[in-house]
Simulated scan of single mutants.
Amino acid sequence: MNLGDLVVRKSYGGDVTFRVENIVQNRAVIKGTEFRLLADSPLNDLVQVPPTRITQRGQRAQIKADESLTQLRKDRQEQSKRSGETVTGAWNQSPKEPAYFEVPGKVLHLDGDALYLNKSLSLYEQLRIPAEGHHVHESKMADTLYRLLPRVRPDIVVITGHDGVLKQPHAYDLYSLASYKNSQNFVAAIRAAREYERNFDALTIVAGACQSHFEALLGAGANFASSPGRILIHALDPVYIAAKASFTSIRESVSLSDVLNHTISGNQGMGGIETRGSFRIGMPRLQDLSSLKVTPSVV
């Protein structure tokens, strides 16, 4: 078995596909290809699988992910249509040259996983959402936000990576942050973001990963967080919520039932509180400056 091989765990019924990240003696560090799960496993519990093999759980997640992306694109088109209807009565416009321009909410995305970050940034680009992403270890996210927030000035912050309930010799306590791999780091990052902006509608925070301490993340100041049911979440669940916030109008609240039901993991994977959208329209439409004929007025 080599680094980069795709594997499943026999003891879990081969329900999740992983990629081998590291091998130390007779154990391997493995990372989920679809779910935000980082684990370790004895080598004799792993079975190598071909790249074309998809587990039933992975297949269901992919179907749901495709449906969610389709819904996002549909919502994006509907938002553009509503924008046009909003300004129709105020300005004459033609279908080819709308009288307005759109300003979706800007996203700052910190991710503890470089591969998932790249997938997320690709989705933001497809949806035409302005986004800046950084691969940051979970333990350094709070310090990174202190530095980045004043420069980037985002409308939405995504704080995600890897998490999970730790295996312990004694019974775990789901109320305690000490029972989680990175929830305490996410809490520190959320608090740093809230020190920068206390208004929940001026800065929307989406935080957490697999099995994160949902209540602690909300208590620290997140608008949306994982995971109410302490389940595995899909790699793109935080991105879906950030996208919904980005192109929901500032005159409206993000529909909780709509956004949570359309995440891949559902309302046991992600939850949140009422939050105003970040999408704005402006007038008049932005012009092509290279075509403007301007007479200079300053010597």
Rank of each mutant, 00 (worst) to 15 (best):
Leu236Phe: 08
Gly219Asn: 15
Ser297Met: 10
Asn199Gly: 06
Glu274Phe: 12
Ser249His: 14
Val239His: 06
Leu286Ser: 02
Leu236Ile: 08
Leu260Pro: 03
Ser291His: 00
Gln268Trp: 13
Cys210Lys: 05
Gln287Ala: 05
Ser291Pro: 02
Met283Gln: 12
Leu260Ala: 07
Ala222Trp: 08
Ser249Tyr: 14
Leu292His: 05
Asp237Phe: 04
Asp288Lys: 00
Ser227Ile: 07
Ala225Tyr: 00
Ile231Gly: 06
Ala209Pro: 09
Gly269Lys: 00
Val254Trp: 08
Ile231Met: 12
Thr263Gln: 08
Gln211Arg: 08
Gly269Gln: 03
Ala243Thr: 07
His213Glu: 06
Phe247Ala: 00
Val294Leu: 05
Ser255Tyr: 11
Pro284Ile: 01
Tyr240Lys: 10
Met270Trp: 11
Ile205Val: 15
Met270Leu: 15
Ile250Gly: 03
Gly269Ser: 02
Ile205Met: 05
Ala216Ile: 09
Arg251Pro: 01
Ala243Asp: 12
Ser253Ala: 11
Val294His: 00
Gly208Leu: 07
Leu289Phe: 09
Ser246Met: 11
Asp258Glu: 15
Ser255Asn: 15
Ile273His: 06
Phe279His: 15
Arg285Pro: 02
His213Gln: 12
Val206Ile: 15
Asn223Lys: 04
Asn261Gln: 14
Ile205Arg: 02
Ala202Thr: 13
Ala220Ile: 04
Lys293Asn: 09
Pro238Lys: 03
Ser253Leu: 14
Gly277Glu: 10
Gly219Pro: 02
Ser297Ile: 08
Leu232Lys: 04
Gly229Gln: 12
Val259Ser: 06
Ala220Met: 05
Ser246Leu: 11
Ala207Arg: 01
Gly272Glu: 04
Pro228Tyr: 07
Ala243Phe: 11
Tyr240Ile: 15
Val259Ala: 00
Leu217Gln: 11
Gly269Phe: 05
Gln268Ser: 13
His234Tyr: 15
Gln268Met: 14
Pro296Tyr: 07
Ala243Gly: 03
Ser265His: 06
Val294Asp: 04
Asn267Arg: 13
Glu215Ser: 13
Val254Ile: 15
Leu203Met: 10
Gly277Ala: 08
Thr275Gln: 09
Ile241Met: 05
Lys293Glu: 03
Ala242Asn: 13
Ala209Lys: 01
His213Pro: 00
Ile233Arg: 04
Ile231Gln: 12
Tyr240Gly: 08
Asp201Gly: 05
Pro284Ser: 02
Ser226Cys: 10
Asn223Val: 03
Lys244Met: 13
Ala202Val: 09
Leu286Arg: 09
His213Lys: 03
Ala222Pro: 03
Ala222Asn: 00
Ala242Phe: 12
Ser265Phe: 09
Gln211His: 06
Ala245Trp: 08
Gly221Thr: 10
Ser227Leu: 06
Glu252Met: 01
Glu252Ile: 09
